[in-house]
């Protein structure tokens, strides 16, 4: 799948979210779904398999997130999967999140931590990153126990890695 096509899908989905007047909420739900999608091999395989009938794949989506996210979010995911582009969902959603942040003159910071952040930590972290980058930061938090501790922040192409995993890696390299 090409970048251009993914961007067009993301733009179309953002237009739908804008029409619903809930771009932030839909973007958050889609981002959360994207995290689940990427971490679950079975789900990724099922939704990306074109040999499975479309009705079956959309039914899986309904069963999985139908009662947890908005109907618009469910419909958007079903649309992409129904078009046979399930394997491109993470990239499309990432582009949609970026487009939503850009529309609000914000930058998306993908924050990985070993334990969930509380509201206070999110706020202080957003303020700190805003101060460092000079942009309004929108936090997208991901819980990733593999980093063992600390925080990894990715804003666009810039990565600020303060994880325990990286410190251990540096320790290993020092030998």
């Amino acid at each position: 799948m090409g970048e251009v096509e993914n961007a067009q899908y993301a733009e179309a989905m953002f237009s739908v979210a804008s029409a619903e007047n809930d771009t932030d909420g839909i973007a958050d739900e889609l981002f959360s779904f994207s995290q689940v999608f990427q971490s679950n091999d079975e789900l990724r395989s099922a939704l990306g398999d074109r040999s499975i009938p479309t009705s079956r794949r959309t039914q899986i989506i309904e069963d999985l997130v139908g009662d947890k996210v908005s109907a618009t979010t469910t419909a958007l995911i079903s649309m992409v999967v129904g078009a046979g582009r399930g394997s491109d969902l993470p990239d499309i959603i990432n582009k949609l999140v970026q487009a939503n942040a850009a529309a609000g003159d914000r930058a998306v910071a993908e924050i990985r931590t070993a334990v969930p952040l509380d509201e206070g930590q999110r706020t202080r972290l957003a303020e700190a990153l805003s101060q460092k980058t000079g942009k309004t930061i929108e936090i997208k938090a991901i819980v990733d126990p593999t980093i063992k501790g600390g925080v990894i922040a990715q804003i666009g192409d810039e990565v600020i890695d303060g994880s325990v995993r990286r410190k251990l890696a540096l320790l290993r390299e020092a030998f």
């Binding site: 070993a114 600390g150 303060g162 325990v164």
Partner: peptide
């Protein structure tokens, strides 16, 4: 490193995680 990881994982309780996050925020 394996020994260090084991030591760190044993000592990385909830308070230690919070301290790490706070330290990160302060460093940024």
């Amino acid at each position: 490193v394996g020994a260090a990881e084991q030591v760190i994982e044993k000592n990385l309780d909830a308070d230690a995680q919070i301290d790490l996050i706070e330290n990160y925020i302060n460093q940024v």
